[in-house]
């Protein structure tokens, strides 16, 4: 028992986010035991999947020392584009999904190249990209979304194999890819780049390439999240609104340092789960959903403040 306690302490020292998540899950278990029915638990994971995927993508960018503020509007753009291109035609489903991934790739590449080669701070690059995507989508659709998604497309967000939703399977795939990437040499050099880009360059790391790949990963992950979100809900300009901040909050909550070089992708994804559990709990406790963004704001400030305190000591 004492060795178990010791291990728990060790884990919580390395991953404090796990402690927070377990605490929240405990409170939830007390207040709403039915949360732990397999079906409801899987439904929760399905709902959480897009944010966890976005957080994983955002992690690559943040750990390399940058930000990606464009993912929210990218999600919106992807869904709106998909609806217009598919326009109810089932045969278009898979080609359009390929186009969505391709579009994510292009946006990520643009973010990465502008940030690295033109030396525009990523904060500005991706803020600009955010506005460009919003404006482009409004213009292209003439102000309101057109077309419709097919049932096949929505299946990915809505349906299940047996009791396991597709979304949860996709999440598992994406999480596995993210974990493998960070265990690979690419992941290690990305951490080194975020820690000290000068050292990384002088040690032979292709720093520009690494940072560009991080942006591409973030945008492609956003495209995957868009596929799931398109299935969950309707086609609207609101579908991706605010997701960039939720993703950054999740990553920071996971203890990943802004400025790069510190933190794990597991913690970033746990951060996203924690955020979703917290929202569920607030809902259960009857706190108004209107407070959601205020809570996020508090969390992001507190998490960064605590992180700064820890790195100083």
């Amino acid at each position: 028992m004492s060795s178990l306690a010791l291990r728990a302490r060790k884990v919580s020292a390395r991953q404090p986010i796990l402690l927070i998540l377990l605490t929240l899950l405990f409170v939830l278990a007390v207040r709403q035991p039915e949360f732990y029915d397999p079906a409801s638990l899987l439904a929760f994971l399905k709902r959480a999947a897009p944010l966890v995927i976005l957080a994983a993508g955002q992690y690559f960018v943040i750990v390399a020392g940058d930000f990606d503020l464009s993912v929210g509007s990218l999600v919106t753009a992807e869904v709106v584009i998909a609806a217009r291109l598919i326009d109810g035609d089932p045969s278009m489903t898979w080609p359009v999904i390929a186009i969505m991934i391709g579009f994510g790739l292009v946006v990520g590449l643009a973010n990465g190249l502008i940030t690295t080669l033109l030396h525009v701070p990523s904060f500005i690059t991706t803020l600009g990209m955010y506005l460009i995507l919003v404006g482009a989508v409004y213009t292209w659709t003439g102000g309101s979304p057109r077309g419709a998604l097919t049932e096949q497309f929505r299946m990915l967000g809505r349906n299940s194999i047996g009791i396991v939703p597709y979304a949860v399977l996709i999440l598992a795939c994406v999480a596995t890819i993210a974990l493998l990437l960070m265990r690979s040499d690419f992941g290690k050099t990305l951490l080194a780049t975020g820690d000290n880009p000068r050292t990384a360059r002088l040690s032979g790391v292709p720093v520009v390439r690494a940072r560009v790949i991080a942006f591409i990963l973030s945008a492609v992950f956003a495209a995957v999240a868009a596929i799931l979100l398109g299935g969950f809900g309707g086609v609207s300009f609101q579908v991706g609104a605010g997701l960039e901040f939720s993703a950054i909050t999740a990553v920071v909550l996971g203890g990943v340092a802004l400025g790069g070089g510190r933190g794990t992708v597991t913690a970033a994804m746990l951060g996203a789960l924690t955020l979703e559990v917290l929202f569920t709990l607030l809902n259960v406790l009857g706190v108004s959903g209107a407070l959601k963004s205020a809570v996020q704001g508090l969390i992001i400030i507190a998490a960064v403040a605590i992180g700064a305190r820890r790195s100083r000591s």
């Binding site: 951490l191 080194a192 000290n196 050292t199």
Partner: peptide
């Protein structure tokens, strides 16, 4: 400023060039 990735481990620092 130019030799270390200070927050990474001893082993990761030693392997940086190989990995890169």
């Amino acid at each position: 400023a130019e030799g270390l990735t200070a927050q990474q481990s001893v082993l990761d620092n030693a392997m940086l060039a190989t990995r890169a």
